[in-house]
Design a protein around this nucleic acid. Structure first.
Length: 440
RNA sequence: GUGGUCGUAGCUCAGCUGGUAGAGCACCGGGUUGUGGUCCCGGUGGCCGCGGGUUCAAGUCCCGUCGACCACCCCA
Protein backbone atom coordinates (compact mmCIF):
# COMPACT_ATOMS: atom_id res chain seq x y z
CA UNK A 1 0.00 0.00 0.00
CA UNK A 2 1.15 3.51 -0.69
CA UNK A 3 1.99 5.78 2.21
CA UNK A 4 0.25 9.11 1.97
CA UNK A 5 2.53 11.82 0.67
CA UNK A 6 5.43 9.52 -0.22
CA UNK A 7 5.06 8.93 -3.94
CA UNK A 8 6.72 6.08 -5.83
CA UNK A 9 6.93 6.19 -9.61
CA UNK A 10 6.92 3.45 -12.22
CA UNK A 11 10.12 2.77 -14.19
CA UNK A 12 8.92 4.82 -17.19
CA UNK A 13 8.24 7.75 -14.88
CA UNK A 14 11.59 7.35 -13.17
CA UNK A 15 13.29 7.45 -16.57
CA UNK A 16 11.53 10.74 -17.24
CA UNK A 17 12.48 12.05 -13.81
CA UNK A 18 16.12 11.14 -14.35
CA UNK A 19 16.11 12.90 -17.72
CA UNK A 20 14.66 16.00 -16.13
CA UNK A 21 17.25 15.90 -13.38
CA UNK A 22 20.02 15.44 -15.95
CA UNK A 23 18.85 18.47 -17.85
CA UNK A 24 18.57 20.60 -14.74
CA UNK A 25 21.94 19.48 -13.46
CA UNK A 26 23.80 20.12 -16.70
CA UNK A 27 22.22 23.55 -17.00
CA UNK A 28 23.22 24.43 -13.45
CA UNK A 29 26.77 23.36 -14.20
CA UNK A 30 26.73 25.29 -17.46
CA UNK A 31 26.26 28.39 -15.32
CA UNK A 32 29.08 27.38 -13.03
CA UNK A 33 27.18 26.27 -9.95
CA UNK A 34 29.20 23.79 -7.90
CA UNK A 35 27.59 20.52 -6.80
CA UNK A 36 26.79 20.09 -3.13
CA UNK A 37 24.91 17.68 -0.94
CA UNK A 38 24.09 18.32 2.68
CA UNK A 39 22.96 15.79 5.27
CA UNK A 40 19.25 14.98 5.48
CA UNK A 41 18.92 16.13 9.08
CA UNK A 42 19.53 19.35 10.93
CA UNK A 43 19.26 20.26 14.61
CA UNK A 44 15.72 21.37 15.32
CA UNK A 45 16.69 24.95 16.22
CA UNK A 46 18.34 25.34 12.80
CA UNK A 47 15.20 24.15 11.06
CA UNK A 48 12.99 26.45 13.08
CA UNK A 49 15.20 29.50 12.72
CA UNK A 50 13.16 30.67 9.78
CA UNK A 51 9.66 30.72 11.19
CA UNK A 52 6.33 29.07 11.57
CA UNK A 53 6.96 25.66 10.12
CA UNK A 54 7.46 23.68 13.28
CA UNK A 55 4.31 21.66 12.77
CA UNK A 56 5.59 20.33 9.50
CA UNK A 57 9.05 19.19 10.49
CA UNK A 58 9.58 15.45 10.79
CA UNK A 59 11.61 14.49 13.84
CA UNK A 60 14.20 11.76 13.87
CA UNK A 61 14.62 9.56 16.88
CA UNK A 62 15.86 6.10 17.74
CA UNK A 63 13.39 3.40 18.64
CA UNK A 64 15.49 2.69 21.73
CA UNK A 65 16.25 6.31 22.53
CA UNK A 66 16.47 7.33 26.15
CA UNK A 67 13.33 9.09 27.42
CA UNK A 68 15.13 12.39 28.03
CA UNK A 69 16.58 12.25 24.53
CA UNK A 70 13.24 13.31 23.12
CA UNK A 71 13.58 17.01 23.74
CA UNK A 72 15.97 19.88 23.63
CA UNK A 73 18.27 21.54 21.18
CA UNK A 74 20.00 18.37 20.10
CA UNK A 75 16.84 16.96 18.53
CA UNK A 76 17.18 16.24 14.86
CA UNK A 77 14.64 16.82 12.13
CA UNK A 78 14.52 16.04 8.42
CA UNK A 79 15.26 19.20 6.48
CA UNK A 80 12.27 21.18 5.29
CA UNK A 81 14.03 22.80 2.35
CA UNK A 82 17.56 23.12 0.97
CA UNK A 83 18.14 26.78 1.67
CA UNK A 84 18.29 26.67 5.44
CA UNK A 85 20.69 23.69 5.55
CA UNK A 86 22.79 25.46 2.93
CA UNK A 87 22.95 28.63 5.02
CA UNK A 88 24.07 26.56 7.97
CA UNK A 89 26.66 24.81 5.80
CA UNK A 90 28.05 28.10 4.52
CA UNK A 91 28.53 29.49 7.99
CA UNK A 92 30.14 26.25 9.11
CA UNK A 93 32.51 26.05 6.16
CA UNK A 94 33.03 29.75 5.54
CA UNK A 95 36.77 29.35 6.02
CA UNK A 96 37.06 26.74 3.27
CA UNK A 97 34.70 28.22 0.71
CA UNK A 98 35.49 30.85 -1.86
CA UNK A 99 33.04 33.74 -2.14
CA UNK A 100 30.88 34.56 -3.89
CA UNK A 101 29.89 30.92 -3.60
CA UNK A 102 27.48 29.48 -6.16
CA UNK A 103 26.22 25.98 -5.67
CA UNK A 104 23.42 23.69 -6.73
CA UNK A 105 21.80 20.99 -4.68
CA UNK A 106 19.31 18.37 -5.89
CA UNK A 107 17.86 16.49 -2.92
CA UNK A 108 14.76 15.24 -1.21
CA UNK A 109 13.08 17.39 1.40
CA UNK A 110 10.29 16.55 3.83
CA UNK A 111 7.24 18.47 4.97
CA UNK A 112 4.41 17.08 7.05
CA UNK A 113 1.60 18.63 5.03
CA UNK A 114 -1.66 17.15 3.87
CA UNK A 115 -0.87 15.64 0.47
CA UNK A 116 -2.69 16.45 -2.76
CA UNK A 117 -1.85 16.16 -6.41
CA UNK A 118 1.54 17.82 -6.75
CA UNK A 119 1.91 18.19 -2.97
CA UNK A 120 3.89 15.59 -1.16
CA UNK A 121 5.50 14.96 2.19
CA UNK A 122 8.68 13.71 0.58
CA UNK A 123 9.74 15.45 -2.59
CA UNK A 124 12.68 16.43 -4.73
CA UNK A 125 13.95 19.96 -5.06
CA UNK A 126 16.63 21.30 -7.39
CA UNK A 127 18.11 24.37 -5.82
CA UNK A 128 20.62 27.02 -6.86
CA UNK A 129 21.92 29.75 -4.61
CA UNK A 130 24.66 32.33 -4.59
CA UNK A 131 25.96 33.68 -1.29
CA UNK A 132 28.62 36.18 -0.52
CA UNK A 133 30.28 37.60 2.53
CA UNK A 134 28.95 40.95 3.80
CA UNK A 135 27.26 42.02 0.62
CA UNK A 136 25.83 40.30 -2.46
CA UNK A 137 25.70 42.31 -5.69
CA UNK A 138 22.20 42.64 -7.08
CA UNK A 139 22.98 41.26 -10.51
CA UNK A 140 22.70 37.75 -9.08
CA UNK A 141 19.02 38.41 -8.53
CA UNK A 142 18.72 38.95 -12.26
CA UNK A 143 20.62 35.78 -13.11
CA UNK A 144 18.39 33.31 -11.23
CA UNK A 145 15.39 33.39 -13.60
CA UNK A 146 17.67 33.05 -16.62
CA UNK A 147 19.17 29.81 -15.29
CA UNK A 148 15.74 28.39 -14.55
CA UNK A 149 14.38 29.46 -17.90
CA UNK A 150 17.29 27.76 -19.58
CA UNK A 151 16.87 24.53 -17.61
CA UNK A 152 13.12 24.27 -18.13
CA UNK A 153 12.96 25.41 -21.74
CA UNK A 154 15.06 22.40 -22.70
CA UNK A 155 12.40 20.02 -21.44
CA UNK A 156 9.25 18.84 -23.24
CA UNK A 157 6.98 20.64 -20.80
CA UNK A 158 4.66 23.65 -21.07
CA UNK A 159 6.38 27.02 -21.06
CA UNK A 160 7.31 28.43 -17.68
CA UNK A 161 6.29 31.90 -16.60
CA UNK A 162 8.35 33.32 -13.76
CA UNK A 163 6.52 35.96 -11.79
CA UNK A 164 8.77 38.33 -9.92
CA UNK A 165 8.15 40.85 -7.22
CA UNK A 166 10.23 42.63 -4.63
CA UNK A 167 9.29 42.79 -0.98
CA UNK A 168 10.82 46.22 -0.72
CA UNK A 169 8.19 47.43 -3.16
CA UNK A 170 5.33 46.10 -1.08
CA UNK A 171 6.77 47.00 2.28
CA UNK A 172 7.81 50.46 1.11
CA UNK A 173 4.43 51.04 -0.44
CA UNK A 174 2.48 49.91 2.62
CA UNK A 175 4.75 51.96 4.85
CA UNK A 176 4.42 55.01 2.63
CA UNK A 177 0.70 54.49 2.88
CA UNK A 178 0.94 54.67 6.66
CA UNK A 179 0.45 50.96 7.41
CA UNK A 180 2.73 49.40 10.01
CA UNK A 181 1.89 45.69 9.93
CA UNK A 182 3.29 45.14 6.45
CA UNK A 183 3.74 41.40 7.03
CA UNK A 184 0.05 40.98 7.66
CA UNK A 185 -0.92 42.98 4.60
CA UNK A 186 1.44 40.90 2.50
CA UNK A 187 -0.08 37.65 3.74
CA UNK A 188 -3.56 38.87 2.97
CA UNK A 189 -2.72 40.21 -0.48
CA UNK A 190 -1.23 36.83 -1.25
CA UNK A 191 -4.74 35.33 -1.11
CA UNK A 192 -5.96 37.61 -3.87
CA UNK A 193 -6.37 34.90 -6.49
CA UNK A 194 -8.22 32.65 -4.09
CA UNK A 195 -10.66 34.90 -2.29
CA UNK A 196 -10.90 37.89 -4.62
CA UNK A 197 -10.28 41.62 -4.17
CA UNK A 198 -13.40 42.35 -2.12
CA UNK A 199 -12.54 39.94 0.65
CA UNK A 200 -8.87 40.88 0.58
CA UNK A 201 -9.80 44.51 1.16
CA UNK A 202 -12.11 43.45 3.97
CA UNK A 203 -9.40 41.41 5.63
CA UNK A 204 -6.76 44.11 5.30
CA UNK A 205 -9.10 46.48 7.09
CA UNK A 206 -9.86 43.91 9.77
CA UNK A 207 -6.43 42.41 10.45
CA UNK A 208 -3.97 45.17 9.59
CA UNK A 209 -5.87 48.17 10.88
CA UNK A 210 -6.14 49.80 7.48
CA UNK A 211 -8.74 52.28 6.31
CA UNK A 212 -10.80 51.37 3.29
CA UNK A 213 -8.80 53.82 1.20
CA UNK A 214 -5.55 52.23 2.30
CA UNK A 215 -6.86 48.77 1.52
CA UNK A 216 -7.97 49.94 -1.89
CA UNK A 217 -4.48 51.29 -2.56
CA UNK A 218 -2.96 47.93 -1.60
CA UNK A 219 -5.24 46.27 -4.12
CA UNK A 220 -4.30 48.80 -6.77
CA UNK A 221 -0.66 47.92 -6.24
CA UNK A 222 -1.38 44.19 -6.37
CA UNK A 223 -3.21 44.58 -9.65
CA UNK A 224 -0.08 45.85 -11.42
CA UNK A 225 1.61 43.46 -13.78
CA UNK A 226 3.97 43.94 -16.71
CA UNK A 227 6.63 42.22 -18.77
CA UNK A 228 8.70 45.39 -18.96
CA UNK A 229 9.58 48.43 -16.84
CA UNK A 230 6.20 50.04 -17.45
CA UNK A 231 5.01 48.90 -14.04
CA UNK A 232 7.05 51.69 -12.47
CA UNK A 233 4.81 54.36 -13.95
CA UNK A 234 1.76 52.45 -12.83
CA UNK A 235 3.07 52.40 -9.27
CA UNK A 236 4.04 56.08 -9.38
CA UNK A 237 0.50 56.98 -10.44
CA UNK A 238 -0.73 55.66 -7.10
CA UNK A 239 1.10 58.58 -5.51
CA UNK A 240 2.80 56.79 -2.63
CA UNK A 241 6.29 57.90 -1.60
CA UNK A 242 8.85 55.89 0.32
CA UNK A 243 12.60 55.35 -0.05
CA UNK A 244 12.27 51.56 0.30
CA UNK A 245 9.66 51.61 -2.44
CA UNK A 246 12.08 53.41 -4.75
CA UNK A 247 14.82 50.92 -4.00
CA UNK A 248 12.50 47.99 -4.65
CA UNK A 249 11.24 49.40 -7.92
CA UNK A 250 14.76 49.97 -9.16
CA UNK A 251 15.70 46.36 -8.34
CA UNK A 252 12.59 44.91 -9.88
CA UNK A 253 13.19 46.82 -13.08
CA UNK A 254 16.64 45.30 -13.36
CA UNK A 255 15.28 41.75 -13.03
CA UNK A 256 12.54 42.30 -15.58
CA UNK A 257 14.68 44.16 -18.10
CA UNK A 258 17.53 41.68 -17.91
CA UNK A 259 15.14 38.81 -18.56
CA UNK A 260 13.49 40.74 -21.35
CA UNK A 261 16.76 40.92 -23.17
CA UNK A 262 17.89 37.33 -22.65
CA UNK A 263 14.64 35.40 -22.51
CA UNK A 264 11.63 37.38 -23.77
CA UNK A 265 8.32 36.19 -22.36
CA UNK A 266 9.87 34.28 -19.46
CA UNK A 267 9.61 36.82 -16.68
CA UNK A 268 6.86 39.19 -15.62
CA UNK A 269 6.71 41.68 -12.79
CA UNK A 270 3.63 40.69 -10.82
CA UNK A 271 3.13 42.91 -7.82
CA UNK A 272 0.67 40.62 -6.12
CA UNK A 273 3.30 37.93 -5.59
CA UNK A 274 4.18 37.99 -1.94
CA UNK A 275 4.93 34.55 -0.78
CA UNK A 276 7.91 32.37 -0.40
CA UNK A 277 9.23 31.78 3.08
CA UNK A 278 9.32 34.69 5.44
CA UNK A 279 13.10 35.11 5.37
CA UNK A 280 13.00 36.76 1.95
CA UNK A 281 14.01 40.41 2.05
CA UNK A 282 13.86 41.59 -1.55
CA UNK A 283 13.32 39.83 -4.85
CA UNK A 284 10.85 36.94 -4.79
CA UNK A 285 10.18 34.48 -7.59
CA UNK A 286 7.27 32.21 -8.28
CA UNK A 287 6.84 30.07 -11.38
CA UNK A 288 3.87 28.53 -13.11
CA UNK A 289 3.62 26.32 -16.14
CA UNK A 290 1.27 27.68 -18.75
CA UNK A 291 -1.98 25.77 -18.62
CA UNK A 292 -1.14 24.41 -15.18
CA UNK A 293 -1.62 27.56 -13.14
CA UNK A 294 -4.08 25.91 -10.79
CA UNK A 295 -1.40 23.54 -9.52
CA UNK A 296 0.59 26.41 -8.09
CA UNK A 297 4.24 27.28 -8.26
CA UNK A 298 6.73 24.72 -9.51
CA UNK A 299 9.76 26.87 -8.85
CA UNK A 300 10.28 29.67 -6.40
CA UNK A 301 12.78 31.49 -4.27
CA UNK A 302 14.18 34.88 -3.56
CA UNK A 303 16.74 37.12 -1.94
CA UNK A 304 17.59 36.60 1.71
CA UNK A 305 19.92 39.11 3.31
CA UNK A 306 19.81 37.83 6.88
CA UNK A 307 19.55 34.06 6.76
CA UNK A 308 23.13 33.23 7.58
CA UNK A 309 25.40 35.02 9.97
CA UNK A 310 28.14 34.18 12.39
CA UNK A 311 29.41 36.75 14.81
CA UNK A 312 29.86 39.87 12.77
CA UNK A 313 30.00 37.99 9.48
CA UNK A 314 26.90 38.17 7.33
CA UNK A 315 26.21 35.98 4.30
CA UNK A 316 23.44 37.38 2.15
CA UNK A 317 22.17 35.16 -0.63
CA UNK A 318 19.73 34.73 -3.42
CA UNK A 319 18.37 31.43 -4.68
CA UNK A 320 15.61 29.60 -6.45
CA UNK A 321 14.38 26.06 -6.29
CA UNK A 322 12.65 23.84 -8.82
CA UNK A 323 10.01 21.59 -7.29
CA UNK A 324 10.87 18.58 -9.40
CA UNK A 325 8.37 16.23 -7.75
CA UNK A 326 5.51 18.69 -7.94
CA UNK A 327 6.21 19.50 -11.55
CA UNK A 328 6.41 15.86 -12.56
CA UNK A 329 3.53 14.72 -10.35
CA UNK A 330 1.24 17.24 -11.94
CA UNK A 331 2.39 16.50 -15.49
CA UNK A 332 2.10 12.75 -14.89
CA UNK A 333 -1.39 13.29 -13.53
CA UNK A 334 -2.40 15.02 -16.75
CA UNK A 335 -0.58 12.44 -18.89
CA UNK A 336 1.44 15.29 -20.30
CA UNK A 337 4.72 13.38 -20.49
CA UNK A 338 5.66 10.15 -22.20
CA UNK A 339 8.79 8.16 -22.85
CA UNK A 340 9.61 6.00 -25.85
CA UNK A 341 10.29 2.87 -23.76
CA UNK A 342 10.01 1.68 -20.18
CA UNK A 343 13.54 0.21 -20.06
CA UNK A 344 16.93 1.55 -21.14
CA UNK A 345 17.42 -1.42 -23.49
CA UNK A 346 18.02 -0.54 -27.13
CA UNK A 347 18.64 -4.05 -28.46
CA UNK A 348 17.18 -7.39 -27.43
CA UNK A 349 19.35 -10.28 -28.58
CA UNK A 350 17.02 -13.13 -29.52
CA UNK A 351 17.94 -16.55 -28.20
CA UNK A 352 17.41 -19.38 -30.76
CA UNK A 353 18.29 -22.19 -28.34
CA UNK A 354 19.36 -22.19 -24.74
CA UNK A 355 22.66 -23.78 -25.84
CA UNK A 356 23.42 -20.61 -27.77
CA UNK A 357 23.22 -18.32 -24.77
CA UNK A 358 27.00 -18.05 -24.59
CA UNK A 359 27.16 -16.90 -28.20
CA UNK A 360 24.31 -14.44 -27.58
CA UNK A 361 26.05 -13.09 -24.51
CA UNK A 362 29.06 -12.47 -26.73
CA UNK A 363 26.96 -10.50 -29.19
CA UNK A 364 25.48 -8.47 -26.33
CA UNK A 365 28.93 -7.77 -24.89
CA UNK A 366 30.12 -6.56 -28.28
CA UNK A 367 27.21 -4.13 -28.57
CA UNK A 368 27.58 -2.92 -25.01
CA UNK A 369 31.29 -2.26 -25.55
CA UNK A 370 30.21 0.43 -27.97
CA UNK A 371 27.68 1.91 -25.59
CA UNK A 372 24.54 0.24 -26.91
CA UNK A 373 22.25 -0.83 -24.04
CA UNK A 374 21.57 -4.51 -24.70
CA UNK A 375 19.92 -7.47 -23.04
CA UNK A 376 19.60 -11.09 -24.05
CA UNK A 377 16.14 -12.69 -24.25
CA UNK A 378 15.10 -14.37 -21.00
CA UNK A 379 14.20 -17.72 -22.59
CA UNK A 380 14.50 -19.48 -25.93
CA UNK A 381 10.80 -18.95 -26.60
CA UNK A 382 9.39 -18.75 -30.12
CA UNK A 383 10.74 -15.74 -31.93
CA UNK A 384 7.28 -14.24 -31.99
CA UNK A 385 7.28 -14.24 -28.19
CA UNK A 386 10.74 -12.77 -28.07
CA UNK A 387 9.71 -9.95 -30.38
CA UNK A 388 6.68 -9.40 -28.19
CA UNK A 389 8.94 -9.19 -25.14
CA UNK A 390 10.76 -6.32 -26.84
CA UNK A 391 7.61 -4.70 -28.15
CA UNK A 392 5.91 -4.51 -24.75
CA UNK A 393 8.87 -2.69 -23.28
CA UNK A 394 9.34 -0.42 -26.27
CA UNK A 395 12.76 -1.92 -27.11
CA UNK A 396 13.25 -0.84 -30.74
CA UNK A 397 15.60 -3.55 -32.04
CA UNK A 398 15.71 -7.35 -31.94
CA UNK A 399 18.98 -8.99 -32.91
CA UNK A 400 18.85 -12.41 -34.58
CA UNK A 401 22.04 -14.48 -34.48
CA UNK A 402 22.68 -16.01 -37.90
CA UNK A 403 22.24 -19.76 -38.17
CA UNK A 404 25.02 -21.95 -39.64
CA UNK A 405 27.53 -19.29 -40.59
CA UNK A 406 24.84 -16.95 -41.94
CA UNK A 407 25.39 -13.32 -40.91
CA UNK A 408 23.43 -11.93 -37.94
CA UNK A 409 20.53 -9.65 -38.65
CA UNK A 410 18.82 -6.88 -36.75
CA UNK A 411 15.15 -5.99 -36.99
CA UNK A 412 13.60 -2.63 -36.29
CA UNK A 413 10.33 -3.90 -34.85
CA UNK A 414 8.57 -0.57 -35.38
CA UNK A 415 8.96 -0.70 -39.15
CA UNK A 416 9.53 -4.44 -39.51
CA UNK A 417 12.70 -3.76 -41.51
CA UNK A 418 15.36 -6.40 -41.02
CA UNK A 419 18.92 -6.12 -42.30
CA UNK A 420 22.17 -8.08 -42.02
CA UNK A 421 24.42 -6.71 -39.30
CA UNK A 422 27.73 -7.22 -37.54
CA UNK A 423 27.74 -6.80 -33.77
CA UNK A 424 31.24 -5.36 -33.96
CA UNK A 425 30.19 -2.40 -36.07
CA UNK A 426 26.38 -1.96 -36.21
CA UNK A 427 25.18 1.30 -34.76
CA UNK A 428 21.59 2.38 -34.17
CA UNK A 429 20.52 5.91 -35.06
CA UNK A 430 21.49 8.26 -32.23
CA UNK A 431 17.85 8.98 -31.38
CA UNK A 432 17.23 5.27 -30.69
CA UNK A 433 20.17 4.76 -28.37
CA UNK A 434 18.36 5.93 -25.25
CA UNK A 435 14.73 6.41 -24.23
CA UNK A 436 13.30 9.66 -25.55
CA UNK A 437 11.04 11.80 -23.41
CA UNK A 438 8.37 13.82 -25.12
CA UNK A 439 5.34 15.88 -24.22
CA UNK A 440 1.81 14.45 -24.29
C1' G B 1 -3.53 19.70 11.62
C1' U B 2 -9.34 20.87 10.24
C1' G B 3 -13.44 19.84 6.86
C1' G B 4 -15.46 17.31 2.38
C1' U B 5 -15.92 13.59 -1.92
C1' C B 6 -14.51 8.89 -3.43
C1' G B 7 -12.13 3.33 -2.79
C1' U B 8 -15.57 -3.24 -6.85
C1' A B 9 -10.32 -7.67 -11.60
C1' G B 10 -3.80 -4.97 -13.78
C1' C B 11 -6.92 -0.49 -16.15
C1' U B 12 -11.89 2.04 -17.15
C1' C B 13 -16.32 1.15 -14.91
C1' A B 14 -21.59 -1.62 -14.11
C1' G B 15 -23.94 -3.88 -9.77
C1' C B 16 -31.83 -1.23 -8.34
C1' U B 17 -35.39 0.23 -2.03
C1' G B 18 -29.62 -5.07 1.45
C1' G B 19 -30.59 -11.42 -1.11
C1' U B 20 -23.43 -14.53 -0.98
C1' A B 21 -20.03 -10.38 -8.09
C1' G B 22 -20.27 -8.56 -14.08
C1' A B 23 -18.53 -6.01 -18.90
C1' G B 24 -14.81 -3.93 -22.06
C1' C B 25 -9.65 -3.53 -22.42
C1' A B 26 -5.25 -5.98 -20.68
C1' C B 27 -3.10 -10.87 -19.56
C1' C B 28 -2.51 -16.46 -20.68
C1' G B 29 -3.49 -20.56 -24.26
C1' G B 30 -5.05 -22.21 -29.13
C1' G B 31 -6.06 -21.28 -34.54
C1' U B 32 -0.65 -19.89 -36.70
C1' U B 33 4.84 -26.51 -34.84
C1' G B 34 10.48 -20.68 -34.32
C1' U B 35 9.69 -13.46 -36.84
C1' G B 36 5.13 -9.95 -32.97
C1' G B 37 1.07 -6.36 -33.77
C1' U B 38 -4.92 -7.72 -37.08
C1' C B 39 -8.85 -11.34 -36.69
C1' C B 40 -11.46 -15.74 -34.50
C1' C B 41 -12.08 -19.28 -30.31
C1' G B 42 -11.17 -20.49 -25.27
C1' G B 43 -9.20 -19.45 -20.32
C1' U B 44 -6.98 -17.31 -15.71
C1' G B 45 -8.02 -13.46 -12.70
C1' G B 46 -11.90 -10.30 -6.93
C1' C B 47 -10.60 -11.23 1.68
C1' C B 48 -15.90 -5.56 -3.25
C1' G B 49 -9.20 -0.96 0.50
C1' C B 50 -8.88 -2.83 5.76
C1' G B 51 -11.36 -3.57 10.74
C1' G B 52 -15.66 -3.52 13.56
C1' G B 53 -21.13 -2.93 13.99
C1' U B 54 -26.58 -3.43 12.50
C1' U B 55 -29.26 -7.64 10.06
C1' C B 56 -31.73 -14.16 8.98
C1' A B 57 -28.58 -11.88 5.10
C1' A B 58 -23.86 -6.27 3.76
C1' G B 59 -20.27 -4.60 -2.39
C1' U B 60 -24.93 -2.02 -0.80
C1' C B 61 -26.60 0.71 5.82
C1' C B 62 -23.53 2.72 10.39
C1' C B 63 -18.65 3.69 12.90
C1' G B 64 -13.44 3.59 12.71
C1' U B 65 -9.03 3.25 9.90
C1' C B 66 -5.81 3.44 5.55
C1' G B 67 -5.41 5.48 0.66
C1' A B 68 -6.62 8.99 -3.57
C1' C B 69 -8.43 13.67 -4.52
C1' C B 70 -10.59 18.61 -3.18
C1' A B 71 -11.08 23.03 0.09
C1' C B 72 -8.58 25.39 4.32
C1' C B 73 -3.45 26.08 6.39
C1' C B 74 0.90 26.41 4.05
C1' C B 75 3.90 25.84 0.07
C1' A B 76 7.83 22.89 -4.34
Amino acid sequence: MPISGFPEWLPAQRIIEQRVIDRIRSTFELYGFAPLETRSVEPLPTLLSKGETSKEVYLLHRLQGAPDEASGDDQLGLHFDLTVPFARYVVENAGKLVFPFRRYQIQKVWRGERPQEGRYREFLQADIDVVNRDNLPFHYDTEMPLVIGDALSGLPIPAARIQVNNRKVCEGFYRGLGLTDTEQVLRTVDKLDKIGPARVAEQIVETAGASEAQAAACLDLAAISAEDASFVDAVRKLGVEDPLLDEGLEELVRVVETAREHAPGLVAAELKIARGLDYYTGTVYETQLRGYERFGSVCSGGRYDNLASSGKDRFPGVGISIGVSRMLGVLFGQQALSVSRSVPTCVLVALPHEEQRVACDRIAASLRRRGIPTEVAPTAAKFGKQIQYADRRGIPYVWFPGADGEPDSVKDIRSGDQVSADAASWQPPAEDLHPVVSGA
